[in-house]
């Protein structure tokens, strides 16, 4: 049996908090859970990724795209209201770890019903032909396992690409970089205006999901709100990024910045000249981190 979790919010920090609360607290001894949700424009990096390496922070800030970090591993994804996020939570078993096939199956079945030849590629992305429509990742506390993914129904792929493409800069770190893929939306692939609601209903039917989990209950809300607050801290979003070197052209001059725990450790010009007190640079990064 699969129980359904519903969120009335499109706030990414709140919805990511629901996911973490759910995987850490729900009783999976007798059923699995499915959480379907949509977020306002945001970029979500993997738990251990370097945000400076993955995200075009300047573009995101200028376009009101929120920066988020999730509890699961893997690479960076973009969400908007035309992307459907799907999350399964089930009892931990070792054979479910890195086994994306079992969790993606209902989603793939729905895509097939829509007439798309969907399958998993070697990186466990759901592909239709040569284009990616969904990326997946997992988290487990060894009691439960969370396996989730995106599904680009009618997302703004221009905005998506822009938000995760660095301009005039190169960032190197020890963190695992995302593997970039060409993406396409379901609407583009079908050349038909289907809605998120229509696809959601097909997924619910495929999973035979019924009976709601009540997350509006006050003590649960309090726990979710606490998690939501931690998801918005600079510590979680930026300082977790491993140390990195940013080579960037700012106002026509090439700089090499050394960043650690989201702070500038050193600034040099390409010629090796120290620019540690460059006020513009410090202001620039402080602004980005809000």
């Amino acid at each position: 049996m699969t129980k359904l979790i519903i969120s009335n919010s499109t706030n990414p920090y709140y919805n990511l908090a629901i996911e973490e609360w759910a995987v850490r607290n729900l009783d999976t001894s007798e059923c699995d859970y499915l959480f379907l949700y949509q977020n306002k424009d945001c970029v979500v990096v993997g738990r251990n990724q370097n945000v400076f390496q993955e995200v075009n922070l300047r573009f995101c800030k200028a376009n009101n795209i929120q920066i988020c970090r999730r509890v699961s591993g893997g690479g960076t994804v973009f969400h908007d209201l035309e992307n459907l996020n799907w999350t399964f939570i089930s009892k931990f078993e070792l054979n479910k770890v890195n086994n994306y096939k079992i969790f993606a199956e209902p989603i793939i079945n729905v895509l097939k019903k829509l007439g798309l030849d969907a399958k998993l590629n070697e990186r466990n992305a759901i592909m239709v032909g040569e284009t990616k429509v969904s990326g997946q990742a997992q988290f487990t506390n060894r009691k439960n396992i969370l396996s989730h993914g995106t599904l680009l129904i009618n997302s703004d792929t221009k905005k998506l690409n822009h938000s995760i493409t660095l301009k005039n800069k190169k960032v190197t770190s020890k963190a695992s970089p995302s593997v970039r893929s060409t993406v396409k939306t379901i609407v583009d692939l079908l050349n038909d205006e289907i809605s998120i609601k229509y696809v959601s209903d097909l997924i619910l039917k495929e999973c035979a999901a019924s009976s709601l989990v009540d997350i509006e209950n006050t003590p649960i809300q309090e726990k979710i709100k606490t998690l939501e607050a931690t998801y918005q801290t600079n510590k979680w979003l930026y300082e977790r990024s491993s140390k990195c070197i940013i080579e960037e052209n700012i106002d026509g001059e090439d700089f090499i910045l050394e960043i650690e725990k989201a702070k500038i450790v050193s600034v040099k010009t390409k010629k090796g000249e120290e620019k540690n007190q460059h006020p513009f640079l410090n202001m620039f990064y402080t602004n980005l981190l809000q």
Partner: peptide, 9 residues
């Protein structure tokens, strides 16, 4: 620990 794309406590 993160392996492939899965984080485990």
């Amino acid at each position: 620990i993160e392996a492939v794309k899965t984080v485990s406590d």
